[in-house]
Nucleic acid binder design. Sequence first.
DNA 1: ATGGTAGGTCTCCTA
Length: 262
Amino acid sequence: MNIKIATWNINSIRLREDQVCSVLNQHQPDIICLQELKSATESVPTSRFENLGYKYRVIRGQKSYNGVAIISRIPLMETGFCDYCAKGDARHVFARLNNGVEIQNFYVPAGGDVADRESNEKFAHKLDFLQEMKNNFFKKKLSKTIIVGDFNIAPLNEDVWSHKQLTKVVSHTPIEIDALQQVAIAGNFVDIIRKDIPKGLLFSWWSYRSPNWIISDRGRRLDHIWATSDIALKAHSSFILKEARSWERPSDHVPVFAEFDL
DNA sequence: ATGGTAGGTCTCCTA
């Protein structure tokens, strides 16, 4: 069985419903995982996705902030979510497929501007969230699991436009990279995108604040698809839809795809 | 060393 999964921080689902339809039409993922819906669950549009054949879903909305969804054209069996850090934030949903594979979709906190747990509670929240992910994965002894989402961390030197200039910038600091690495170890996860595209700079996000983003190309790889090693050992391929950043009224993140032979 | 843009509303907060 082949399965193609997409992850995309959409930065408002209501504003970019058209773009989601376009991605579904043109790239035909079996499952798309979205983050930053910025909508209450009942305000998230679904009928156009259903009309395209995506009639299974689990949505965890939140007014104005966060919000995650898994939208699928293959059946989702058990679905649910965890309330990481017990703040009521809509940052996680999961679904199990009928072959036993579990998909988990995360929106990890961005962490604010200052990379210091003591002075910046948003950074503390980010580190606590990662710690809780690690603890959850250790407990479960995972297999047959794919986790995706906006992890808000670019772990490798070539996941940012300048390792040297970003090493003190939240998203690429050693403490975050170490915390994310511990999550990977705890869950027995392989970074599928980097496994498939091992060489060179690779980004999934470009700031809105750079008017010349395509020329300066100061991006970061914040969006990830990881799989437990049992899945990662089989065939897979990955793709980042960079052109989506050039669409009219774009998200600052672009869709990331991985196709698995399960 | 600084500020730049975008989205949803809480006309400020988050990213």
